[in-house]
Amino acid sequence: MAAENVEKLHALLRTLDTVMVTTVDDQNRLISRPMALRMGDFGGTLFFLAPTNSRIISHIAARSAVNISFTSANSSVSLTGTADFTTNYNSVAEHWHSMLAPWLPRGTTGAALIEVTIDEARFWSVPHGSTGATGA
Rank of each mutant, 00 (worst) to 15 (best):
M1S: 03
A2M: 07
A3K: 09
N5R: 04
N5L: 05
V6D: 04
K8W: 00
K8N: 07
L9S: 01
L13H: 06
L13M: 14
T15H: 11
T18K: 09
V19S: 04
T22Q: 07
T22D: 10
V24G: 03
D26M: 10
R29D: 14
R29T: 10
I31K: 13
I31Y: 08
I31E: 12
R33C: 01
R33S: 12
P34R: 03
G40Q: 09
G44C: 05
F47Y: 15
L49R: 04
A50F: 04
P51T: 09
T52C: 09
N53K: 12
S54K: 02
R55N: 13
A61F: 06
S64T: 11
N67M: 09
S69E: 07
F70T: 08
A73P: 10
S75A: 15
S76N: 08
S78L: 11
L79K: 02
G81R: 01
D84P: 00
Y89P: 05
Y89A: 15
Y89I: 13
N90P: 00
S91W: 05
A93Q: 12
H95A: 06
M99C: 02
L100E: 06
P102I: 10
W103T: 05
W103H: 09
L104Q: 03
G107I: 01
T108A: 04
A112L: 03
T117F: 00
I118D: 00
W124I: 07
T131P: 01
T131L: 06
G132M: 06
G135T: 05
